[in-house]
Design a protein around this nucleic acid. Structure first.
Lengths: 250, 250
DNA sequence: CGAATTGACTTGTTTAAACAAGTGGTGTAT
DNA sequence: ATACACCACTTGTTTAAACAAGTCAATTCG
């Protein structure tokens, strides 16, 4: 349960938006009104609202108010957010999943691996390949490089279960930041061998750099998805001009 | 030029990170130190830092500090951020671009269009199809639906230039929020007709819902990209548990 | 020597206040 | 009737202060 006030307010407002208590296309109650209702300071209300903005639930205009722009996501049965954990999605959609370890070996980062992953040359790594299946259908092929010094005792058994449960619960590691890049690539022979691509001759590739609380990148994973079930959602908010083009609109 | 203090501090810190003045993998000066240097309050420093966190430049740990996790983006010559505007990217990489209007006609949103786009049934719309070329190579096929009541005088000439310059400068419209979904789809005959797909039999599809400051969605655009030059970047930060799974890590 | 405590740091949350700036309506003067 | 000033409202930015909570090293105690 979230203990912070702003998280509670965020959750309350979000629920009202999703349930239609606040009509779509109209303004939410003003900050002052919400202050009165929740018995908190203006900053706390504003923080809750700013998270709703980030999530694409509302948008603000100076001088006018906070507008509800919620639209329910179309839950196509085949789509799946990459953002969610593989098991999260499966549990939400009630489907059966399995993970198979294809390869687990040790290696050292050379120039090529270093360029691809961002690990310094010479880093001791595990190379781990896994196939994720959903309802018996292989849909994701994962190639991971993992720092040996962050998880010296990694085994096939652990890799077959939830790697993150092991890292977080057993090793006490805290995952903080993750940088992703999405591309589309030609299917390799390995993709065709392990995945059920159907008519497609390509895969959706999510490259992921994961950092722990020490600020060290301990994992690089390239997830190669069957295109038909790949889906990624994102919200962008117009920023002040000085922010650089990384998230410019359009 | 950004006038707000926090934007200036953000820009200054970002530049120091990019230029290596703050070493990668190490802690930035503490908030108190930065307060002294910039002559501002703690909140202002914290706001600048929180934007750096969102952009994947740093990450924070309670009790420890703010860690520099910057990694320069590998600027592969062929990759292009969808996040950037088509012309932005072209200008940055110094390539020549052109836009061709394939179709511009009026229509009314029926059930199918409504389901796909989110426009209410019966909305008067422009249907606009455009091909974007870079260095003579057609790389993006755009299908847009635009609310007629937001731009009654749309013409082919305007659509061929920058639609957004027209909307913002001529009509005074303010773009605020944009919701995107990325998928990968089989190439249609239209894709193969207009795009230079090479070996690929699919396209990277970015569906975009754009809202103005009134909170009305005035544009739905489906951008179908040649896979070989498609690239999308994203940062995720671990959130408190109550936030819902939309952005969970891994 | 080893374990626990303390204390000096760090970031995280919340409050209160003031002023800036944008929006939209009301009213007045032209 | 139109244009203008004004006013009441909204969100945006900044400051200051207090307390909570996590980290890490030095010190103290057993």
């Amino acid at each position: 349960m979230p203990r912070e006030k702003f998280t509670q307010i965020y959750a309350t407002l979000k629920e009202r938006i999703e349930s239609g208590i606040y009509p779509v296309g109209q303004l939410l109650p003003s900050e002052n009104t919400l202050i009165g209702e929740f018995g908190c300071s203006r900053n706390t209300v504003r923080r809750a609202i700013s998270e709703l903005v980030r999530d694409g639930y509302v948008q603000t205009s100076q001088g006018k108010g906070v507008c509800n722009i919620f639209q329910p996501i179309e839950c196509s049965s085949y789509t799946m957010g990459t953002i969610e954990s593989f098991r999260e999605t499966a549990r939400r959609t009630g489907q059966h999943t399995a993970t198979r370890v294809v390869l687990l070996e040790r290696c050292v980062a050379g120039v090529n691996i270093s360029l691809q992953t961002g690990f310094p040359v010479g880093t001791q790594l595990f190379s781990l390949s896994r196939v994720h299946e959903m309802d018996g259908r292989p849909i994701i092929l994962n190639h991971s490089y993992l720092r040996v010094d962050c998880m010296p005792n990694l085994t096939e058994e652990i890799a077959q279960g939830s790697l993150y449960r092991y890292l977080e619960e057993e090793l006490g590691m805290v995952v903080v930041t993750s940088k992703r890049t999405i591309t589309v690539e030609q299917a390799t022979p390995a993709d065709e061998k392990w995945l059920d691509l159907g008519e497609y001759n390509c895969v959706a590739v999510v490259s992921n750099q994961v950092y722990n609380s020490q600020g060290v990148m301990f994992e690089y994973t390239q997830s190669r998805h069957v295109p038909s079930i790949f889906r990624f959602q994102d919200n962008a908010v117009r920023r002040s001009p000085g922010h650089g083009a990384r998230h410019a609109l359009v």
